[in-house]
Design a protein around this nucleic acid. Structure first.
Lengths: 328, 328
DNA sequence: GGCCTTATACTCCAGATGAGTATTATCAAG
DNA sequence: CTTGATAATACTCATCTGGAGTATAAGGCC
């Protein structure tokens, strides 16, 4: 998201000897398109689920944002409910030649997901790429069994004492070791930590063939270039956003029960929320209104159906709202 | 920041007839550099205070971020404590020719401000550009006396009823009319509203010479291109950020009193905070430690001097903190 | 009817927040 | 050396908010 001193890795290095090129870089758009179906948060992927959809910026478009929108809608035939810019970075390894590539990444939310791509596009659960991020059924064993010892070892391997302590402290905070609470928003920080520790497949790509590698094949599906990092950025942004902005509704069907809404939020946040408190907050904020209908297929008592009050959007989009996901 | 449907204006339009240019755009960096001195939040400007510093992206740099950092430090000889990307947009009116320009804007915080530019750089209070954003001495008369009637008239002038209501509702929320609370974070939304209503000088630039204009010369100093909009984005981002991230300290001298810290926060937020509660929050978060010294030149009882606990930064940079500025 | 499942209505408590009051320590002016 | 002005600093208090739990209602299914 944003770096303190300069967290590195965000943007790929170019040799310091390269000359100044004032004019003439290529610009790419990269999209993190999200939908939630059957209780899973899904992201649109291409290239055998190993890449995010992307394409060159075309001047024909009014703006970057509308360019992205038009391009996605043409490719997928999905209406995009919400678009937000994520991050821009420069990457010289792309293009193949001397010309650097500037990549502008976007987060987009959509309701449906008839894939319908021109290439083999498919929607995949984002936990395929980040299995350690799903805490709905408790903390995944992967974290305590695999990450904990390896991050510990990596920390201890640091030369100077300050670095050692710094590494371990980041591990503690991001993964909630030593009884710290889990903070679902730190998706990017966790990914970066694992990357630096060499546990992520992508981190060891540039290295020699026979080199020893710490990379864990079971630490999530790898992606092309830094696409997994961009996905992490998108997930983090969305997890933060749903807490104070009514964007969840862009992912919901026209009418829904409160439990469906809750399941959607839980899928995104990767953690469960207290049902009664969730309803209290939703209702007292007047974000939804009853349709008058009820849904029978709940498995229990029929639930009232609600619809998002679009009329309140102008107000709340700017003034903010809340969702009950513990930050502590 | 981010747009709902597509708030327009964010990125300048290019004619729909323009052809696709896959390769070859120019990339510019634009910086919002902020410092706080004598109780005023200041921004570095060039070109007779009518522009933000900017320059072409040079491939010689490791990354966009380090490029920005190196370039600013060379130009101003100021160390940048904190850098954060703001927004990227495409602008075809720039470059003069067919080549579109991609502008990547950054927010940077620095401690001192010996201008020292190569061109005539100077630090200006950002309230010079946004006089309506300073509520430290109460709401500026400008808002009730000038904006209120004009925004009212602009709303009423809308053709259909929905648009009329939408305009006025945005005015109410962003400016706190009709007894709504003032929300200091809505800097960008306010600027966009004034821009759409034609009250901002920049909004009427492209128009005919003799055309009638609503633009108010007293509604803040105008800037080149969309620099004022970028500045608004930076202010909004910073105002939001100081509430949950310990970035204020990047703007403070090595040691400071709690009142100095408070004044700095107030300068940025454009509103006053409750002194006792401010201190309570700062101290219970253990963000600062006493130096043991006291400052005599307070005008009253001497105040303890504090220093920011840099050692806590690694933890808090990621875990977050709080500052007491009412959101309600 | 008994039991499972989910919806929905309330209650409780602890900590955070907003807004005071009271007291203490300096300096400067008379 | 007393009086004011200005701040620092210590407490108090009522309210809000958020997390968690209990109780009851309304369906399906056996």
């Amino acid at each position: 998201m944003n770096t303190y001193p300069d967290n590195g890795m965000a943007e790929i290095a170019a040799p310091a000897s390269a000359l100044l090129i004032g004019r003439g870089v290529a610009a790419d758009l990269i999209a993190v398109l999200v939908a939630v179906t059957s209780g899973e948060p899904r992201v649109l992927t291409i290239a055998d689920q190993r890449a995010l959809p992307s394409g060159p910026f075309q001047l024909a478009h009014r703006s970057l944002q509308s360019g992205l929108r038009a391009w996605v809608e043409r490719q997928t035939r999905l209406p995009l409910g919400y678009i937000e810019q994520l991050y821009t970075f420069a990457d010289r390894d792309r293009g193949g030649g001397e010309q650097p590539v500037i990549s502008i990444s976007y987060l987009g939310l959509t309701r449906e997901q008839r894939a319908s791509g021109e290439y083999e596009a498919s929607w995949r659960s984002w936990y395929l790429y980040f299995p350690w991020e799903d805490h709905r059924l408790g903390a995944p064993a992967l974290i305590a069994d695999e990450f904990l010892p390896r991050l510990r070892a990596w920390s201890d391997a640091a030369g100077d004492q300050f670095l050692r302590q710094n590494r371990w402290q980041r591990a503690i905070i991001t993964f909630g070791f030593e009884d710290r609470p889990w903070n679902e928003e730190l998706v990017l920080q966790r990914y970066e930590l694992l990357y630096e520790a060499g546990l992520i497949t992508e981190a060891t790509r540039g290295e020699q063939q026979g080199a020893f590698s710490n990379a864990m094949p079971n630490a999530g599906q790898a992606m092309v270039l830094d696409h997994r990092r961009i996905l992490a950025t998108g997930i983090a942004r969305l997890r933060a956003k749903i807490k104070y902005h009514p964007v969840v509704f862009e992912l919901m069907p026209e009418t829904f029960t409160l439990l469906q809404l809750q399941r959607c939020v839980e899928a995104l946040a990767g953690r469960l929320v207290h049902k009664q408190n969730f309803r209290r907050l939703i209702e007292q904020q007047e974000l939804v209104e009853e349709t008058g209908e009820t849904s029978q297929d709940t498995g229990g008592r029929p639930a009232k159906l609600f619809r998002f009050r679009r009329d309140i959007l102008a107000e709340r989009a700017v003034a903010g709202t809340k969702l009950p996901i513990s930050r502590a």
